[in-house]
Design a protein around this nucleic acid. Structure first.
Lengths: 218, 218
DNA sequence: AAATTAAATTAGATTAGCCTAATTTTACTT
DNA sequence: AAGTAAAATTAGGCTAATCTAATTTAATTT
């Protein structure tokens, strides 16, 4: 159907559109794909030919409806496999990304749906990212950055915006786990460090960078 | 590491060596790979360069130790994934081959071994084919073709040599399942049809082609 | 052993996805 | 509005894996 490369472009474009707005720049895509700009121009022409993206010379590009559908399908696969790897095989949440990047490209609606059922129709992957349903519908998250809470406010830890293993390990080390309740005990005005009160009254003091990578729902 | 294509060549060569003897012909490999002969010559030169096969111009070729190791690793993956698809996800045994062909190329010893453990260290895949262990050791099968039994002899159905969905469905339709006991009730001399007595005294009459594709152990 | 047939290889092209270097287009400054 | 900087594209090349057509090598038949 589509090559792995095409699929990875689609996924990357989808994510860039999600965070950086509708239209994507060649250079931005080149950066996340780890290739040089002319390769992107090349690839986009091919993909535009297949109606996966709409592309106007030097004006940026975005996914077509068709392209979006493919991208969401891949994200669904990716997140379901991550759940499998963690829940069934016992991998840690910081180990599964690269494996899921490979598994996500195996195309079979039947496989995906059977896997979904086997896992008990999970709503989110091990990092809290929502899993699109079989129709490609992504539940709209109501989570906010922990950095947006004021001192005294509280929420439930629902996800991360930084998926790097080093950050995930940092959270493990400080016993900050998905589903925990987190209360902002205090905020140091001088350097924006946050003291957090976790489930069981444990307190940790963390930098702004940390609270700015945590999602909570209130 | 190696491309999917290379890995598929390695697997195909391994299987040809297993059934047709040590040295493999260009044309035979071209046929099973579904490509034309010059493509095979090309590919083999590349693979010889990587020490995956030993190759002498116009003299055929065979796997090196290194190549054999890679091939067996892929077969291990393939068969473990087939067990997963059937035992855990509920696929039928005639549906899993193509999916396993994709899953087998995901490389991670860690993944393979965790999957193996999750499945309870199975010894054979859903078609009865033996699964190499983590060291690449394949248990030597003591099974024989059902066609080699004489009238009155009996065995346990342990595997098939024809893996085509149409044959597997035929077996399903006649309630011939792995693990069943099968007794050769009689052999018709005229056309070599076999009447088999299955577990529970059910009798079926089948052609020579069928008994020549069934493996039994005595 | 010579002739014919079959198998394998070489030669030369093609496609996807990438590259570097050069050029063009767009955006930003003054 | 002109000049510069940044971003995007074109031009031309490379590699892996394939192809067809032509040639060479090996095997088989008479």
């Amino acid at each position: 159907m589509h090559s792995f490369t095409e699929e990875n472009y689609l996924k990357a474009i989808y994510k860039l559109q999600e965070t950086n707005g509708e239209v994507v720049a060649t250079s931005a895509l080149a950066q996340v794909m780890g290739v040089h700009a002319p390769s992107v121009t090349d690839m986009l022409k091919r993909m535009a030919g297949k109606k996966l993206v709409t592309y106007q010379k030097s004006k940026g590009f975005k996914l077509s409806e068709k392209g979006k559908k493919v991208a969401v399908g891949i994200i669904r696969n990716h997140r379901l496999w991550e759940v499998f790897l963690v829940d069934k095989l016992g991998f840690r949440w910081d180990e599964v990304h690269d494996l899921a990047e490979q598994l996500e490209h195996i195309h079979s609606e039947d496989l995906t749906n059977k896997l979904d059922k086997f896992l008990g129709f999970p709503k989110a992957d091990p990092h809290g990212d929502p899993i699109p349903d079989a129709n490609g519908v992504l539940p709209k998250s109501k989570s906010v950055l922990l950095s947006s809470l004021k001192a005294g406010e509280e929420g439930t830890f629902t996800g991360v915006t930084d998926h790097s293993p080093v950050f995930l390990n940092y959270l493990d080390k400080n016993a900050i786990s998905l589903g925990n309740s987190i209360k902002v005990a205090s905020i140091e005005e001088y350097d924006q460090t946050y003291t957090l009160q976790l489930t069981g009254k444990k307190e940790v003091t963390v930098s702004f960078k940390v609270v700015n990578s945590l999602l909570v729902s209130r």
